[in-house]
Amino acid sequence: MEEIINKIAQDKLDFKIGLQQLLPYNFDELFVTLNNYIINSIPNKTDYNTEAYQNALATIPLKPTYTPIVILKTYPAKIAMSKLPLLPKRENIKTITALLWIFKITDTERRNTECKNGCGHFWHEIY
C-alpha cells in the first residue's frame, strides 16, 4: 500500500490506476496511512494550512459538493481528518480519492522545496 501511494505522489503511477489498486485495501488502514502521510508532508505543524494544502483542496478531482470535500474545505485539517472516518461507508471512495490527491500535491511541494537537495526520506529515494 505504501509503495503505491508514494508512486502516485511521485508521478510514477497514474493517479486513477493507483487509486484503483488502493481501493481493495482496508479503508481504516488506508485512511490512517494517508492521514499520517498528509500530516507529515505539510511543513506547517501549527495549523497544517499551507499554500500546497489549499491548492490540493481546490484541485481535488471530485465534485466540490461531495461530503468529504465539503468537510475538508470547511474545517481545519486536524478536525476534518477526525470527521472523515465517521462518514457512511458510501463516502469511503470519495474520502480516499480526496486524501490521496491531497498527499500527492503536498508531497510534491515538499519534494520540490525542502527535499530538493536530498532529505533522507527513504520513500523519496526508492520509489
Rank of each mutant, 00 (worst) to 15 (best):
Met1Glu: 15
Glu91His: 07
Leu99Ala: 07
Asn26Phe: 02
Ile105Val: 15
Glu91Cys: 09
Thr46Lys: 06
Phe122Asp: 14
Ala52Glu: 05
Ile17Glu: 14
Tyr53Ala: 12
Ile39Lys: 09
Tyr37Glu: 04
Ile42Glu: 06
Ile38Pro: 01
Thr74Arg: 13
Asn40Ala: 12
Tyr75His: 14
Ile71Phe: 15
His121Asn: 08
Arg110Gln: 09
Thr95Tyr: 02
Ile5Leu: 10
Leu62Tyr: 06
Gly118Phe: 07
Leu99Ile: 10
Gln54Ser: 13
Asp28Thr: 04
Glu29Phe: 07
Ile105Glu: 00
Ile4Phe: 03
Ile8Lys: 07
Pro88Val: 02
Gln20Ser: 11
Glu29Met: 04
Glu91Thr: 08
Arg110Leu: 09
Ile8Ala: 11
Lys45Phe: 05
Ala80Trp: 01
Pro61His: 13
Asn6Lys: 13
Lys12Leu: 14
Asn35Val: 04
Leu30Pro: 02
Ala52Cys: 07
Phe27Ala: 01
Thr59Tyr: 08
Ser41Asn: 06
Tyr37Arg: 12
Asn26Tyr: 02
Lys116Trp: 02
Leu34Glu: 02
Met81Leu: 15
Asn49Cys: 12
Glu91Ser: 08
Ile93Met: 05
Leu30Gln: 04
Asp28Arg: 06
Asn6Leu: 14
Glu3Asp: 13
Ala52Ser: 13
Phe31Ser: 00
Leu100Gly: 01
Leu19Trp: 05
Leu100Asn: 03
Glu114Thr: 08
Leu62Asn: 12
Thr50Ala: 05
Lys116Gly: 03
Asn26Gln: 09
Lys16Thr: 02
Met81Thr: 04
Phe31His: 00
Ile5His: 02
Leu22Ser: 00
Leu19Asn: 10
Lys104Gln: 07
Tyr75Ser: 12
Asn35Thr: 10
Asn92Arg: 03
Leu57Arg: 09
Asn55Gln: 11
Ile4Met: 03
Lys83Ser: 02
Pro64Cys: 07
Ile39Leu: 14
Thr46Arg: 06
Lys89Arg: 10
Glu29Tyr: 09
Lys83Leu: 14
Lys12Thr: 11
Gln54Asp: 13
Thr50Val: 09
Thr97Glu: 07
Gly18Trp: 09
Thr113Met: 07
Glu114Leu: 03
Leu19Gly: 06
Lys63Tyr: 05
Ile105Thr: 04
